[in-house]
Amino acid sequence: MQKVYLSEEKSVFGARLASRFREAGYEVVREPAPGLSFFIDLTDESLPGDGLSVGEGIDAGAAAEAYRRNVCLPLQKLDAAFPDMTGAKRICFLASRDASVEWSRATAGYGRLMARAALYQILTITKNTWLAKGYTFRLFDPMRGEADPEKAADAAFVYFTRDRYDDGPDNLDRNDEGNLLVRDAFGREIPW
């Protein structure tokens, strides 16, 4: 049975995603371990102190803690699962249009959103090394507060499990898996 690490299944989104994987015959585990097919981290933590805008006294301690929780700790977990993944060897994280330098309209949540942007960067660099070894990557914006979380989880399940165009390891330049991007619950591409 293929194993899926899912960081949480308490939220509506997480619970639905877990049940979709179980229905499809996967074993869902809560601790990263060798032998995973999917590593799915749903961390997106807002800390009260990290909610200030410029001029309101941005809290450096809270922003750093939000950064630690939203990118550093998830990376440590990913690192623990690496490099012994099997099957799809797929790494999936949440994304947000608020963390798009191009599109964001946000004015607060510095630590949380800067963490998300940094995550896009390290996943891209990781992909540059590990794609040739069969690792694949997904970034998904569940459109929190906008899209129905169960429907968003259904969309995430499809996006996470479906392969993209792949011309084999000898033709990485023609491989759609090499083109890491963010998609939202409606399937739209969000720019970096």
């Binding site: 805008s53 410029v54 001029g55 950064y67 990118v71 963390a99 330098v101 964001s104 309209r105 946000a106 004015t107 607060a108 949540g109 510095y110 959103l113 800067m114 963490a115 998300r116 942007a117 940094a118 995550l119 896009y120 960067q121 390290i122 660099i125």
Partner: peptide
């Protein structure tokens, strides 16, 4: 690289305000 990408996003939030 991560730190400079995070910087760009931080600057975006400043820009928005």
């Amino acid at each position: 690289a991560m730190s400079k990408t995070a910087l760009n996003l931080g600057v975006r939030l400043l820009f928005n305000s």
